[in-house]
Computed example of a mutant assay.
Amino acid sequence: MELVFDGHNDVLLRLLVNMQGGGDPVAEFRDGTDQGHIDGPRARAGGLAGGMCAIYVSSGRFELRRPDADGHYDTPMEPPLERQPSLDIALAMAAIAFQLDRAGAWRLCRSTAEIRDAMEEGIFAAVLHMEGCEAIDRDLAALEVFHAAGLRSLGPVWSRNNIFGHGVPFTFPSSPDTGAGLTDAGFDLVRACNRLGIMIDLSHITEKGFWDVARTTDQPLVATHSNVHALTPVARNLTDRQMDAIRESRGVVGLNYATTMLRPDGRESAGTPLFDMVRHIDYMVERMGIDCVALGSDFDGAMIPATITDAAGNQNLVSALSAAGYDADSLRKICRRNWLRVLGKAWHEH
């Protein structure tokens, strides 16, 4: 079994929602559930040894707009969120992460050494990530506190706008060049992340925002859960030029398992074959090289192929990649080593 460190999941959101309904997040993760994609037992069964766990403030019940007869859709952007309620939700999700750590259900990791140790011990290695910085103030005081608490990765925006920048809408077909990029506050956020050692995720930002980050950051460029625009022209996917910049910075792209970002027709369908996942990996490897490609499932945040189903099915993709000709060293890089290299660089470890 090839152990996987995953670039993105939304398990904390699922646990928070269930807790608000009376559930016990520690028991749900530790003992297992039939809901969502990730818990401890299913992670172990599928070799999911750890990943970036998102603090994400939902806009409510988000749904993609139904496609027209040609399969095209243009989902309206969600409105900006107020900061104080967003901070409360972010703190509640962080608290769940700490509770899981204290109970031994997973280990909250702040260094690549801690990730490696947890994986060797068979404990899920969780890294706190923030998907959209609605909980962060303009003066970045909250960023300092979240970093002290263990935040080690963030995306300035989700697919909505905030005080730091502009996100891309869920639109197919569409270029990622959909609007403005970073604000002045966003440039300050990038510089603060560089100083603190917080990895910057470019997965939901506009193309202009991507280039704003690229010319400001001293880190490798990273998109934790994005795919190839040339194969699936949804606004969330990366152009060849963006991937070239990621290659030049020795960054990483994590393959997103969301079917809307894998299929040529951009549709949400659990019947999406493993072939579509492999062809995105193939394209990224050919464009960027084997050292720049990883996995970023979006477990608990999207519809994924039924051939994977949940974390327990992760090895089905590994087997498909092996059958497509990827050797053992290449699989180790895609499954975990590329993430550990880039995280170590962003975290000032080397």
Rank of each mutant, 00 (worst) to 15 (best):
L3R: 14
F5M: 08
G7L: 07
L13H: 14
N18C: 12
G22H: 13
G23V: 07
G23H: 12
A27D: 12
E28I: 10
E28W: 12
F29Y: 15
R30C: 08
D31S: 14
D31Y: 13
D31F: 11
T33K: 11
R42H: 11
G46S: 04
G46N: 01
G47M: 03
A54N: 10
I55K: 05
Y56L: 14
V57N: 04
V57P: 03
S59D: 14
L64I: 14
R65Q: 12
R66M: 07
D68F: 11
H72R: 15
Y73E: 10
T75G: 07
M77F: 11
M77C: 13
Q84G: 06
L87S: 05
I89V: 15
I89D: 14
A95D: 15
I96F: 09
A97W: 10
A97Y: 04
F98V: 12
Q99C: 10
L100S: 05
R102S: 13
A105H: 01
W106Q: 03
C109H: 05
E114P: 06
I115G: 00
M119P: 00
M119G: 01
M119W: 04
E120F: 11
A125H: 00
M130Y: 02
E131P: 04
E134W: 04
A135H: 02
L140R: 03
A141L: 04
A142N: 02
H147W: 08
H147E: 04
L151E: 05
G155D: 00
P156M: 05
P156L: 03
N161C: 08
N162I: 12
I163N: 06
F164L: 06
F164W: 05
P169N: 07
T171P: 04
P173H: 00
P173I: 03
D177G: 06
G179I: 00
T183W: 05
F187C: 07
I198H: 09
D201V: 09
D201Q: 10
D201L: 08
G209M: 01
F210Q: 01
V213G: 00
T217C: 04
Q219E: 09
H225T: 10
H225I: 02
H229S: 07
A230C: 06
L231V: 02
L231A: 04
T232W: 05
T232G: 12
M243Q: 01
I246Y: 01
R247N: 03
R247M: 11
N256R: 14
Y257W: 14
L262H: 10
R267D: 10
G271C: 13
Y283K: 13
Y283T: 12
E286I: 04
I290G: 07
I290K: 11
D291V: 10
S297H: 06
D298V: 10
D300Q: 09
D300F: 13
D310C: 06
D310R: 07
A311Q: 05
A311W: 06
G313H: 11
V318N: 02
S319C: 09
A320P: 03
L331T: 12
R332T: 13
K333T: 03
R341K: 06
W347Q: 07
H348P: 05
E349H: 07
E349N: 03
E349M: 08
